[in-house]
Amino acid sequence: MSAMPEDRPGYELAFLLLAGFRTLIDELHAELARQGHPHLRPAHGFAMQAIGPHGTSASDVGRRLGVSKQAAGKTIDRLEELGYAERVNDSADARRKIVRLTPHGIDALTRSAMIFDRLRARWATTLGADRLADLEDALRMVAGPAGLRIDTISWLSP
């Protein structure tokens, strides 16, 4: 029997949401490692989402992540070292560099999407499809219009 809502401390909600997020991300990265991406970390995934399918500048990556251009540059440097991103000349402005995903980076994001779909399906089996859909709808409602943000990494940093 579960506790009555008034018996549940308020802080537990945040920790339970974080635990659910952490469970998904940990399982995602374990599977990505098995599929040939052992060095990817959660921050890399956020950065690759910020880079996007068409590439962008390091400044834009920083803005999208909510970090400085220098912090974004360090993450981009690491993604380059691992073969997930590259800096190329901007065809519209020779003074500017564009960061874009390499085929290896695109492969990681494609695999991530498929793995997330499998993880969601597993949650649907565990919770029931209707309960999971209700949970997702409720989270969208309380998160509001800015609910899907990738700047969370900067928010958690000291």
Rank of each mutant, 00 (worst) to 15 (best):
A50P: 13
R149K: 11
E6I: 08
A146E: 13
A47S: 15
V99D: 00
E12G: 07
M141A: 15
L24W: 00
G55R: 06
G55I: 03
V99M: 00
P9E: 02
Y11Q: 10
L148G: 08
S68C: 10
F21C: 12
G147T: 08
S68K: 12
S57M: 01
L132I: 06
D90I: 05
G83W: 04
A58N: 15
G36N: 06
S112V: 01
V99E: 02
R122C: 00
L156W: 12
R140M: 04
A33M: 00
G20Y: 08
E136T: 11
I150L: 04
T75K: 04
Q35P: 08
R149L: 00
L119P: 08
E136F: 05
P145G: 14
K69V: 01
P145N: 13
D117L: 10
R95G: 01
E12F: 07
L18K: 09
I25S: 06
G66Y: 11
S68E: 11
V61Y: 00
L109H: 04
A143Q: 10
M114F: 06
D90P: 12
G144S: 07
T152P: 13
M48Q: 05
Q49P: 15
G83F: 04
D93A: 12
P53R: 02
A71S: 13
H104Y: 08
R22M: 09
P145W: 02
G144I: 03
T126F: 00
L40M: 01
H54D: 14
T110Y: 07
L40C: 05
M1N: 11
R140A: 09
A33Y: 02
R22F: 04
G105D: 07
T23R: 06
D117V: 13
Q70G: 11
A72K: 08
L119T: 08
M114L: 10
D77W: 01
E81L: 04
L119C: 02
T126H: 03
P53F: 02
L148D: 12
L132Y: 04
W155D: 14
S91K: 14
I51Q: 04
R22G: 10
T110R: 11
L101G: 03
S68I: 12
G10H: 13
D151F: 01
H54E: 15
R63F: 06
A30P: 03
Q49S: 15
